[in-house]
Amino acid sequence: MTDRAPGPRRRDRRGRGMRGPGVLPRTPGRPETRTRRERFDDLVLAVVTEVDAQWADRLGTVEYAVEDTPDLPDDWDPTEIPLGSAVRGTGGEPSRVVVFRRPIERRAESRSELDVLVLTVVVEQVADLLNVEPQVIDPRYESD
């Protein structure tokens, strides 16, 4: 038996830290803080809105999407993972630009690098659709 002073029992008696959420949600079933996926989607939306507003007359209808990872065939070279893809529309089908979240997040070491990388990927894909150099789409584009 230990010589502990009598007192209230502590909830954290095994040193595991606080249990449960740090912030209770305002809406039950929905976390109060945004997930990484939601923050990434917001970042892509901000970049796409800026680029699309400037080039909408030449682009026409374009669908933008964020996917977690690219769907690659088994014989794909694992050292070359795409960060995005662009597919030209045909007939009644709109063009489509897809940004792959997980490969981009793995390459970025900070929030500012993530911002630059998302801008770079979106600019490259839009430039590919328009058959122009990426610097024409956005002068902030850096080829490195």
Rank of each mutant, 00 (worst) to 15 (best):
D3T: 04
A5L: 12
G7A: 15
G7Q: 15
G7I: 13
R9V: 12
R10P: 11
R10G: 15
R11H: 12
R11T: 14
R11M: 11
D12K: 06
D12P: 08
R13G: 10
R13W: 12
R14F: 08
R14A: 05
G15V: 01
G15S: 00
R16D: 07
R16L: 10
R19C: 09
R19H: 10
G22S: 14
P25C: 02
P25W: 03
R26M: 06
P28E: 00
P28T: 01
G29F: 01
G29A: 04
R30L: 06
R30F: 04
R30Q: 08
P31N: 07
P31D: 05
P31E: 05
R34Y: 05
R36S: 14
R36P: 10
R39L: 15
R39N: 14
R39F: 03
D41C: 12
D41N: 14
D42T: 10
L43E: 07
V44P: 06
L45F: 02
L45M: 07
A46N: 04
A46F: 00
A46S: 09
V48Q: 06
V48D: 06
T49I: 00
E50D: 13
E50L: 04
V51N: 02
V51C: 00
V51Q: 02
A53E: 07
Q54W: 00
W55E: 04
W55D: 00
A56N: 05
D57A: 07
D57Q: 03
D57P: 02
R58C: 02
R58P: 02
L59V: 10
G60H: 00
G60F: 03
V62K: 06
E63H: 15
Y64D: 10
V66M: 08
V66C: 12
V66S: 10
E67Y: 08
E67H: 14
D71I: 11
D71W: 09
D71R: 15
P73S: 04
P73A: 04
P73W: 00
D74R: 05
D75Q: 02
T79D: 11
P82R: 14
P82Y: 11
P82A: 14
L83M: 09
S85W: 06
A86W: 02
V87D: 12
R88T: 09
G91H: 01
G91P: 03
G92I: 05
P94A: 07
P94K: 07
S95H: 00
R96Q: 10
V98C: 13
F100M: 13
F100I: 14
R102Y: 01
P103L: 08
I104M: 05
R106Q: 15
R106P: 06
A108C: 02
E109C: 01
E113R: 06
L114P: 11
L114Q: 11
D115A: 10
D115W: 01
L117S: 07
L117F: 02
V118D: 00
T120M: 04
V121T: 14
V121E: 01
V121A: 01
V121Q: 05
V123E: 04
E124P: 03
Q125E: 15
Q125C: 12
V126I: 15
A127V: 09
L130Y: 04
L130C: 09
L130D: 08
N131H: 09
V132M: 05
V132T: 13
V132Q: 07
P134N: 09
Q135C: 05
Q135S: 12
I137N: 05
I137V: 15
D138E: 15
D138A: 13
P139L: 07
P139Q: 12
R140W: 03
Y141E: 07
E142Q: 06
